[in-house]
């Protein structure tokens, strides 16, 4: 996937999302100095190429009643982690699933899955279900429930935000 300057400018301008106006792509186009048709074509191409993984309404789980989420981590032998991770990722309640490095001795876990639920008990049930389905029983594990969210917004790769987004309480 090759990104050029115009692609970057476009994605930068979209960091806060589309403006909620009748012709949002025209508004974005004006902001970045492209035509409306070019903006639309570029977004379609970036989605095809996998740079844009999805385009649409991004919801906040917590505000929608999914009060509990647990970053669940396992220590899986390196040769098994890819197959295990793919099985985990197929579960619809797993929203993120990544391999990350261990940092011994402080951090022995290399497989990360984010699991959301309405409350703690339902998240724990889902963790057990995930453990079983992905064949993770017996692997060292930690369940890191979130307590407070201090900040949540889309990533900003380039420079200062146009508008500050308030930190989330609760």
């Amino acid at each position: 996937m090759a990104l050029n300057d115009k692609d970057r400018r476009l994605l930068h301008a979209l960091q806060d999302g589309l403006p909620l106006v009748p012709r949002p792509y025209a508004a974005v186009a004006e902001a970045v100095g492209l035509s409306e048709a070019d903006v639309v074509a570029r977004l379609a191409r970036l989605a095809d190429e996998g740079v844009v993984k999805r385009f649409g309404v991004v919801v906040r789980h917590r505000e929608l009643g999914y009060r509990a989420n647990a970053m669940t981590v396992w220590d899986v032998p390196d040769e098994a982690v890819a197959a295990t991770g793919r099985r985990l990722a197929e579960l619809d309640f797993v929203t993120l699933c990544y391999r990350r490095p261990r940092r011994l001795p402080d951090w022995p876990y290399n497989l990360f899955a984010m699991i959301h639920g309405r409350d703690r008990a339902s998240v724990l049930r889902l963790v057990e279900q995930a453990t079983e389905v992905a064949g993770l029983a017996g692997h060292p594990r930690a369940i890191l429930f979130s307590r407070r969210g201090f900040k949540q917004r889309g990533a900003r790769y380039l420079g200062q935000p146009a508008r500050p987004e308030p930190a989330l309480a609760g």
Binding site: M1, L3, R8, L11, L14, Q15, D16, G17, L18, L20, L43, L46, G50, V51, V52, K53, R54, F55, G56, V57, V58, V59, R60, E63, L64, Q152, R153, G154, A155, Y157, L158, L168
Partner: peptide, 25 residues
């Protein structure tokens, strides 16, 4: 959509960019 965004249910209407396509994290 404006109201849902104001209330916090919607973060944005926009792109979810693949990790590391644009930068590093």
């Amino acid at each position: 959509l404006r109201r849902l965004k104001e209330e916090g249910a919607v973060s944005r209407v926009g792109a979810v960019v693949a990790p590391h396509a644009l930068g590093r994290s």
